[in-house]
């Protein structure tokens, strides 16, 4: 109940499709059962095709997202190129492990397309940076159990972009409806080779 991971609530999910990936989050910010804000996005963009989702303690969501904005901007200035999703994932991992004995209470999710091959890339982490490479989907947040169930039943390989949007949206929306700490609308990103689509889902406002 008073775990730092479930004070503020929130959910995030990423999925692989055919030559595309999707990442989505809910918009709730709460204090235990009380909802404080219904406009608190948890997915952040760090490059044309690099996205990071962060669930967990809201203060650490903000701190960690700002930290990676700094680190990725420094990377781009130093190397005169955008960071690749796999490289970014390893940066997330090493940055979190740096705080091994006083961790940020977040469960990150990375989604993107490899700039060289266009190959979809997703992975998830625990709060100290252990990477979970997945071929299908990654879930995180207080609705992760529900998301696992939804993804296991809805996801199938090689979904085209439009179908992937429908799948990830239904998975998230129906998962957060069974979680008291998540919901209140959603952001969904569909990442394709030369197009990124962001959609705002209203969702149930209760």
């Amino acid at each position: 109940m008073s775990s730092p991971f479930s004070i503020n609530g929130g959910a995030c999910v990423a999925m692989v499709g055919k030559d595309c990936v999707a990442i989505a989050c809910d918009l709730r910010l709460g204090l235990q059962a009380l909802t404080v804000s219904n406009n608190f996005p948890k997915v952040f963009q760090y490059g044309e095709h690099v996205f990071l989702g962060l669930t967990g303690l809201a203060t650490d969501v903000a701190t960690v997202s700002d930290l990676f904005r700094y680190k990725v901007n420094m990377y781009r200035l130093r190397e005169e190129r955008a960071i690749a999703p796999r490289t970014f994932a390893n940066l997330v991992s090493s940055s979190l492990y740096e705080r091994r004995f006083g961790p940020y209470f977040v469960s990150p999710v990375v989604a993107g397309l490899d700039p060289k091959t266009g190959e979809p890339f997703i992975c998830g982490f625990d709060s100290i940076g252990c990477i979970d490479f997945a071929k299908d989907f990654i879930v995180s947040g207080t609705a992760s159990d529900q998301l696992f169930g939804m993804c296991e039943s809805l996801w199938e390989p090689n979904l085209p972009a439009e179908d992937l949007f429908e799948t990830i949206s239904q998975a998230l929306l129906n998962a957060v409806d069974r979680d008291a700490l998540s919901g209140w609308g959603a952001h969904v990103y569909i990442i394709e080779k030369d197009k990124v689509t962001k959609r705002l889902l209203k969702g149930r406002q209760d």
Binding site: E79, T87, L91, S94, S95
Partner: peptide, 11 residues
């Protein structure tokens, strides 16, 4: 140890 890959030559 940060990016799990070796630096490009210029770096």
């Amino acid at each position: 140890r940060i990016y799990n890959e070796y630096p490009p030559t210029r770096i």
